[in-house]
Lab assay of single mutants.
Amino acid sequence: MAEQVALSRTQVCGILREELFQGDAFHQSDTHIFIIMGASGDLAKKKIYPTIWWLFRDGLLPENTFIVGYARSRLTVADIRKQSEPFFKATPEEKLKLEDFFARNSYVAGQYDDAASYQRLNSHMNALHLGSQANRLFYLALPPTVYEAVTKNIHESCMSQIGWNRIIVEKPFGRDLQSSDRLSNHISSLFREDQIYRIDHYLGKEMVQNLMVLRFANRIFGPIWNRDNIACVILTFKEPFGTEGRGGYFDEFGIIRDVMQNHLLQMLCLVAMEKPASTNSDDVRDEKVKVLKCISEVQANNVVLGQYVGNPDGEGEATKGYLDDPTVPRGSTTATFAAVVLYVENERWDGVPFILRCGKALNERKAEVRLQFHDVAGDIFHQQCKRNELVIRVQPNEAVYTKMMTKKPGMFFNPEESELDLTYGNRYKNVKLPDAYERLILDVFCGSQMHFVRSDELREAWRIFTPLLHQIELEKPKPIPYIYGSRGPTEADELMKRVGFQYEGTYKWVNP
């Protein structure tokens, strides 16, 4: 592979701008107003304001973009700056750019259920340069409990009458099928589907988006991507930290609602779906819905739930269990780990287990898709061969690698495990991989909904998990304890083995 010439960040961002501006969906010269509902909250200060700053800094926003914060707290732009700027990672050389960014910011205080507050917000936006005809993007960085009041008031008082209007809704989209349907029906009564952007930030990850290209742009994968060759698929999300004093919020939802029903299920769809007619948003989402419709409700015998306990040999936070978090209700049975087996009941995947695993306070930070292939028929190497695996590593250190057998150097035919490896950090030294939120917010500006969740996708996802969630809430089974920093409950490994996964433990990928 030829040595790549190092590029400056300015040059890299210039390439990104060229890609972005050559499309006809990006209205570079139009006025846009980006409204952050819930501007005083954690999500706004840690993710949304920093993301908008990065896009502005790199010249990736339309030229005439204004940012308006809205929340109940009586704040000023200076207050917003004070709480969000520490997350910007701005350099001293960017000081003038930073001043320009905050000059485009404003803030309006108001209630979430008060019509007069929204009329005041609308008047404020109209007073901005060309504000009355601007395109408006409303980001709901809010708890779902206020979605209905907020969307109703936005629709009645704050819509642009000339430009387009788009609304970005953060997960969780309800707690179960019934609450999700209620919320979807409410929002759909106010906005068209092409105006609604239900954001799952995992769909903005580079390697998640790469799944489609790997599958449908490489001839070698087509013939082997089926039940005849693939023994099982494992989708993993692991965090090495616990709730760390923020367990009160987590306890309301648990690990299945927080990660599995959305992030992991979306990745499953991209692995299992048929080739779409095109890369058009609805063509892709149509195929994802077909996959979900082929999955039956989760069966309790295919589920393992766990909850982390303190590690007596650990240090600091590792010595504390979930129930030691003062914000967690006493005696909570909320799971911090889950392993679930699903089956896609169609011709391509009949009988292939899709194993979804996620948890907190585990032994490493990792998100990946792992396809394990069947054993080689007619073994001539005296059971020395391990199964081939194709691994798409989402985070950290984005990579695609194939675990395969090669001859060990020497005189004899002794096979050993090795890999074919594409590590993004080595291959793409001159490429700026956008943060997931950067990519998705740019998608909203461009009107691309491919990486957002459609209402029928959402409904099918909740259909699969709601009976299990209701059973857990009714019966309150005690989750299996696992030690902070471990791989999780051993019962999860036993479940995976029972459905056909072979864990060798003899080879570990190392970032080159």
Rank of each mutant, 00 (worst) to 15 (best):
A6C: 14
A6I: 07
A6W: 15
L7Q: 06
L7S: 15
R9W: 13
T10H: 08
Q11I: 08
G14T: 07
I15G: 08
I15K: 14
I15Y: 11
R17A: 15
E18W: 07
E18Y: 08
E19W: 06
L20Y: 14
L20K: 07
F21P: 10
Q22W: 11
Q22D: 09
G23C: 12
G23Q: 10
D24A: 06
D24T: 13
A25D: 12
A25C: 12
F26Y: 13
Q28D: 08
S29D: 08
D30C: 10
T31Y: 09
H32D: 08
I33V: 10
I33K: 04
I33M: 05
I35A: 09
I35Y: 03
M37G: 07
M37F: 11
M37Y: 12
A39T: 06
A39H: 08
L43P: 01
L43S: 02
A44E: 00
A44H: 00
A44Y: 01
K45G: 05
K46F: 03
K46H: 04
K47C: 03
I48W: 03
I48L: 07
Y49C: 02
P50I: 06
P50F: 01
W53E: 05
W53S: 03
W53L: 02
F56N: 04
F56R: 02
R57F: 03
D58F: 14
D58M: 06
G59T: 02
G59P: 00
G59Y: 05
L61H: 01
L61A: 03
P62Y: 06
E63D: 07
T65G: 02
I67G: 00
G69F: 00
Y70Q: 14
A71V: 01
R72S: 03
R72Q: 02
R72V: 02
L75C: 15
L75F: 15
V77I: 14
A78N: 10
D79I: 05
D79Q: 14
D79K: 09
D79G: 13
I80A: 09
I80Q: 12
R81V: 08
K82N: 14
K82A: 14
Q83L: 13
Q83A: 13
Q83E: 12
S84K: 08
E85P: 02
P86I: 05
F87R: 05
F88Q: 05
T91H: 12
T91F: 08
P92N: 15
P92V: 09
P92F: 14
E93P: 15
K97R: 08
L98R: 05
E99L: 13
A103P: 05
A103R: 09
A103D: 14
R104T: 04
N105K: 02
N105I: 11
S106H: 11
S106M: 07
Y107H: 09
V108E: 07
A109K: 13
G110F: 02
G110D: 08
Q111D: 15
Q111P: 14
D113T: 14
A116F: 10
Q119I: 06
Q119M: 09
L121G: 01
M125Q: 13
N126Q: 10
N126H: 14
A127G: 07
A127N: 08
L128I: 14
L128Y: 08
L130E: 10
G131M: 10
G131S: 15
S132Q: 08
Q133K: 07
Q133N: 12
Q133L: 06
Q133G: 06
N135W: 06
L137Q: 06
L137S: 06
L137N: 09
Y139P: 01
Y139E: 07
L140K: 03
A141Y: 03
P143Y: 00
P144C: 04
V146T: 08
V150A: 06
V150F: 03
N153F: 12
N153D: 09
H155E: 13
E156F: 11
S157E: 14
S157K: 12
M159R: 14
S160Y: 09
S160G: 14
Q161V: 15
G163M: 12
G163Q: 12
W164I: 06
N165C: 15
N165L: 08
R166M: 00
R166P: 02
I167S: 01
I167Y: 07
I168L: 15
V169T: 07
E170G: 01
E170C: 01
K171N: 00
P172Q: 03
F173A: 03
G174A: 04
D176N: 04
L177Y: 13
S179Q: 05
S179G: 08
L183P: 01
H186K: 15
H186C: 11
S188N: 11
L190A: 13
F191R: 02
E193M: 03
E193G: 00
E193R: 02
D194Y: 08
D194V: 08
Q195T: 10
Q195W: 07
I196S: 04
Y197K: 02
Y197R: 00
Y197M: 03
R198T: 02
I199V: 04
I199Q: 08
H201I: 01
Y202R: 00
Y202G: 01
L203E: 01
G204P: 01
G204W: 03
G204A: 03
K205I: 00
K205F: 00
K205P: 00
K205C: 00
E206H: 10
E206Y: 06
M207S: 03
V208R: 00
V208S: 04
L211C: 03
L211W: 07
L211T: 07
L211K: 02
M212N: 01
N218T: 05
R219K: 08
R219D: 06
F221E: 01
F221V: 11
F221D: 03
G222H: 06
P223T: 08
I224C: 14
W225N: 01
W225D: 00
N226P: 01
N226W: 05
N226F: 06
R227A: 07
D228R: 09
N229K: 05
I230A: 03
V233Q: 02
L235G: 10
T236C: 07
F237C: 12
F237V: 13
K238Q: 04
K238H: 01
E239V: 03
E239L: 02
P240N: 12
F241C: 08
E244F: 11
E244I: 12
E244G: 10
G245F: 09
R246I: 05
G247I: 07
G247K: 09
G248T: 12
G248L: 13
G248I: 03
G248F: 10
Y249V: 00
Y249N: 00
F250I: 03
E252A: 10
G254H: 01
G254R: 00
I255D: 01
I256R: 02
I256L: 10
R257H: 05
R257Y: 00
